[in-house]
């Protein structure tokens, strides 16, 4: 089932950018950090949209959470490091963490631990394109593109042209 088309995906991100721009305090530098790999792509898509809404991000980067995952011992050789690229000090920034799908909340937990090792932001906000429910940790998004009901055996797939040759969100 198709949840978002390419056009709807763009509109959704635009709405999220507007909401982020409106929420960010004027005196705080806005920083955008995407979780690798698809959160990073969505974060990059948000940058020009934030600019259009008059609240450009001061800095942006990409976070690799592999080393902070709580299932590292069970995933074995499937863990592939892509590296964190955050070339600025996150301390005192108003940091928006971007991911594609919010599910159990464990990725976000790992990301929060990774961010803690990098500095102390003024605030960390969570932006996700899709919230599919089934949380296993007390974590909720601050900016959410679409909330959708799923069953545990559903897979929500956010496709981006960079990796998948197409922009869309599907439920399979």
């Amino acid at each position: 089932m198709n949840l978002l088309t390419s056009e709807q995906m763009h509109e959704t991100l635009d709405r999220m950018a507007a909401a982020i721009g409106a929420a960010c305090p004027e005196d705080a530098p806005l920083s955008i950090v995407g979780i690798r790999r698809r959160g990073e792509i969505l974060a990059q898509r948000l940058l020009p949209l934030l600019e259009q809404h008059g609240r450009p991000a001061a800095q942006h980067g990409a976070l690799d959470i592999t080393l902070y995952r709580d299932d590292l011992t069970t995933i074995g050789p499937n863990a592939v490091l892509r590296g964190t690229e955050i070339g600025f000090d996150i301390t005192d920034t108003w940091l928006v963490l971007v991911d594609d799908v919010l599910y159990t909340g464990r990725s976000v937990r790992a990301a929060l631990d990774a961010l803690t090792d990098l500095g102390r932001p003024r605030a960390v906000k969570l932006a996700v394109l899709i919230d599919r429910g089934w949380r296993e940790l007390p974590i909720q998004p601050d900016f959410c593109g679409l909330t959708t009901e799923t069953t545990a055996d559903h897979i929500v797939k956010v496709k981006v042209t960079e990796f998948d040759d197409v922009d869309e969100v599907v439920l399979v």
Binding site: D64, T66, L67, Y68, L72, L81, R82, G83, T84, E85, D113, A114, D117, L118, G119
Partner: peptide, 20 residues
């Protein structure tokens, strides 16, 4: 070598440690 390149970043932080 690629994995090592990812680990270089850890040594540039003020907290030079990851929980892996």
């Amino acid at each position: 070598l690629d994995t090592a390149a990812s680990f270089q970043e850890v040594s540039t932080r003020s907290i030079k440690k990851v929980p892996a």
